[in-house]
């Protein structure tokens, strides 16, 4: 396994483990659904990463034929979507904006591109979940334009979700073109930024939970 790749994977797993412990402690203390959902999101992502890294460690190759990590990551995306739905449980009116239609079109295009290189079903599932997640965040952000007060506390969480998905898609696209195992590969920087996103998940979810 490459050194930078190893370090970067260990960094993400460590970040996820720490965030997971904090989220589980909050879940146990508050028994609040939003914290349980966040714990499941972090837990699913952590387990997917751990399976991937252990496979690399023991067998020296990526688990190409195992769908368990992608199953776990897709579960994490589902929980992220459920967190957003919980934040919007009191109802957010559907907004009218071209952005809400451009995003699915771009994602469908990217999904078709990824399908030419990889698994059909896993890519399709990820695309569907990401469209829902991004549309929920965008719709929430558009609704909160010019608003302040209690409702606006969800705004940073929506922005974080959009950053999260932008980084995920950037990584997947970069990995198709950039194969270098050096720090010059932007894939590693995106993955480190994704790890930092997990750290921000905790305070921003806590803020959104106050609504």
């Amino acid at each position: 396994m490459n050194d930078i790749n190893t370090l970067e994977n260990i960094f993400q797993i460590t970040v996820l483990a720490v965030c997971l412990i904090i989220a589980v402690v909050r879940s146990v203390r508050t028994t609040s659904r939003i914290w349980i959902l966040l714990s499941m999101f972090l837990g699913a992502f952590f387990l997917g990463d751990l399976y991937w890294v252990l496979w690399l460690l023991f067998y020296g190759e990526t688990p190409y034929y195992s769908y368990i990590p992608s199953l776990s990551w897709n579960a994490a995306y589902i929980y992220q979507l459920l967190v957003l739905m919980h934040v919007q449980r009191k109802g957010v009116p559907r907004q009218r904006s071209a952005f809400l239609w451009i995003i699915p079109a771009v994602i469908v295009g990217l999904c078709a591109f990824y399908m030419t290189h990889g698994d059909y079903l896993a890519n399709l599932i990820t695309a569907v979940i990401s469209i829902y997640s991004i549309q929920y965040s965008m719709n929430g952000l558009l609704y909160l334009r010019g608003k302040s007060g209690s409702e606006a506390k969800a705004r940073p969480l929506y922005i974080l979700t959009l950053v999260f998905w932008a980084l995920e898609y950037a990584m997947w696209t970069l990995s198709m073109f950039w194969m270098g195992d050096t720090l010059a590969n932007p894939y590693f920087w995106c993955d480190i930024a994704l790890s930092i996103c997990f750290i921000f998940c905790l305070p921003l979810t806590a803020k959104a939970a106050e609504i």
Binding site: A44, L47, G48, L54, F58, P69, Y79, L82
Partner: peptide, 22 residues
């Protein structure tokens, strides 16, 4: 929520089990 929850918990349990087996 039930549907999403069932799929989610199943995936998490499968990963935990897979890591144990590995």
């Amino acid at each position: 929520i039930r549907m999403a929850g069932i799929i989610g918990v199943l995936a998490v349990a499968i990963s935990f089990h897979g890591i144990f087996n590995m």
